[in-house]
Simulated scan of single mutants.
Amino acid sequence: MQNFERRRDRFALFDRMDSPAVNLCFTMHLPEFRPWCKEQGLGPFHVLLCAVLRAILQVENFRYRVLEREVIEIDRLHPSYTVVNQHFDLNFAQFDWSDDVREFVARSQAAGRAAGAMEALNDNYAGMSAREAREQVFITCMPWLDFTSIQHPMASLAAPDIPSLAWGRFRSGPDCLQLPFSVQAHHGFVDGYHIHLLAQRIAAELEAIMLASPFIL
């Protein structure tokens, strides 16, 4: 927490505001990983989700949370993301972490199918402890939209310490993959520079995943 202590005054500044959240939407540039996913039989969304969550854990500022009015640093994540069910209503897919990308994708896909088959809202998160609830990142994907702005819901405007991330429709660029990407986080923890670092780490994680080349089953 030494790095946080250096910015505790920044945290105090933003935390006393009505809404301390910073929300940036930008065009993410990533290596074109979809052909690799097709070759490996892995869903692109789930591979990107894996890269995003791995990157979150590597940028310290995205691991800060507020628990019982104290700042803590988490070291693990409970993966989850939004899906639509058969009636096109939102639901939440939740699953256990795996360091192995193929197992991560399998668990993610299974959780998505299970949540998509539910009519009632998946409320498994209600059984989390207060600490476990902070070990999340809120993820949504809107593959139909090339959006330029987004406002994420928050239980309280004064408590945006769990980051909210969203991305939209993939499009091929001249030498890379491009997609709209949004990051919302507590400005006491995260500045624009840290969002830049996160974007770099996501691209690097995708490269690393492709270089590892999981065995085709």
Rank of each mutant, 00 (worst) to 15 (best):
E73H: 08
P31Q: 08
P174G: 13
L211V: 11
V52K: 04
L198Q: 08
S172L: 08
V183W: 12
D191V: 06
L211N: 13
L30K: 07
G112D: 10
E103D: 15
I56N: 10
R6S: 15
H87P: 00
Q200G: 15
G127R: 07
W36K: 05
D123G: 06
K38H: 12
D123N: 12
L13Y: 15
L30M: 09
F215C: 01
S172I: 05
A158K: 15
Q109M: 11
D89W: 03
C176K: 05
P44V: 12
A133H: 14
V83C: 04
V22L: 15
F26V: 12
H78S: 09
D18F: 10
S108E: 07
A120R: 14
H78D: 01
S182F: 09
L42W: 08
T27V: 14
Q200S: 14
S164D: 07
V71R: 06
A166I: 01
D161V: 00
A111C: 07
L198W: 14
N23T: 15
L30R: 06
L49P: 00
C25Q: 09
R65I: 04
Q200P: 06
P153H: 03
L77V: 08
E135P: 02
L145S: 14
T140Q: 04
I162D: 09
I150A: 12
N124W: 06
R201F: 01
V59E: 13
E135Y: 02
T140E: 01
F189D: 07
A212E: 13
Q151N: 14
V66S: 05
A51C: 09
F95C: 03
P153D: 02
